[in-house]
């Protein structure tokens, strides 16, 4: 009887021990992550002012700014969105609504899950060989946007599929029953009802694209650029110009990388400030995605 008692007491001790230690480790992880982010804000937040946002990079830390990187990030993100959103949603639709169960579909599915685990720098190498040299796009905004578009494509596809899967089957059956074709079902029912989930996925994918650095370094983004790409609107007809697509560029994370690598303390402050800007953008986008998902979930009741 004593032996059993002993075993029970020991087991209970380890159980209670883990409850305490596990909780402490969880708290410690959260504290470490918040200390790191807090440290970044502490060092960089004061540096963010109008001058910082509207100046070009400079040899002097206190005169330097992130205008060209900010504009570059926005333009690259536009190309990324234009390339990955339609392609990703279409691929997700095909796999959920149209694809027959055969080897080819299985190949596409395995392929997408493998693409998601390819390191981002490999996409950079592919883009360097394909876009920059074989297709002669050069080290341009277009090449960068396409690279990031391909990089985030698996995220868009996977989240689109999840969103479509959550539309109940009886909605489709009801639409088919009144004579709708497949595309009409998709366009009028499946897409609108899953748009919340799809939007969430798109925003998360784009927030990932904003922070992505390695593939853009690989295709040759500039780290010091003191001019803006050509404007998309022109005073003469046809008023819209796409010349900016072929312009060289810098983006926020590369600007941060460049400033971290410098020895002067002033540039480290600048790096922290860019880091704060990037974090505000990416975490803001992620928070928006969570909010959208929550709103849509509340609104739609099957």
């Amino acid at each position: 009887m004593d032996r059993v008692d002993h075993i029970v007491r020991r087991s209970r001790f380890f159980d209670a021990f883990f409850a305490v230690v596990g909780g402490l480790i969880l708290v410690a992880v959260l504290i470490v992550l918040f200390v790191l982010i807090g440290d970044l804000f502490y060092r960089g937040f004061d540096r963010i002012n109008w001058q910082f946002l509207t100046s070009f990079p400079s040899r002097f830390a206190e005169r330097a700014g992130i205008l060209s990187a900010l504009v570059g990030s926005i333009l690259v993100l536009i190309v990324t969105a234009v390339c990955s959103i339609p392609l990703g949603i279409a691929a997700g639709l095909y796999l959920e609504e149209y694809a027959p169960k055969n080897r080819l579909t299985a190949l596409i599915e395995i392929n997408i899950s493998n693409l998601a685990s390819v390191p981002s720098i490999i996409y950079g190498l592919m883009a360097l060989g394909l876009f920059v040299y074989k297709l002669n796009l050069g080290q341009s905004i277009l090449a960068a946007g396409l690279t990031l578009g391909l990089l985030v494509l698996p995220i868009v596809i996977v989240t689109t599929r999840e969103a479509i899967r959550s539309v109940p089957q009886h909605i489709r059956e009801a639409a088919f029953a009144v004579g709708a074709t497949k595309w009409q079902v998709v366009r009028d029912h499946v897409l609108p009802y899953s748009s919340g989930g799809i939007m969430t996925g798109v925003i998360i994918a784009l927030s990932r694209a904003i922070g992505e650095t390695a593939p853009l370094v690989t295709i040759g983004a500039l780290t010091f650029i003191s001019f803006l790409p050509s404007p998309p609107l022109t005073p003469e007809p046809p008023f819209i110009s796409f010349k900016w697509l072929m312009d060289p560029f810098a983006v926020l994370p590369i600007q941060m990388f460049n400033w971290i690598s410098r020895p002067q303390e002033g540039f480290h402050v600048n790096a922290a400030a860019v880091g704060v800007v990037i974090l505000i953008i990416t975490l803001g986008m992620n928070a928006a995605a969570i909010l959208i998902r929550w709103r849509f979930r509340r609104r739609i009741k099957w």
């Binding site: 790191l36 790096a271 922290a272 990416t282």
Partner: peptide
Amino acid sequence: SAVPTVVYGYFALLF
């Protein structure tokens, strides 16, 4: 997990 890796690079080198 959405924090960009370049920010973690900053933590590694300067923290």
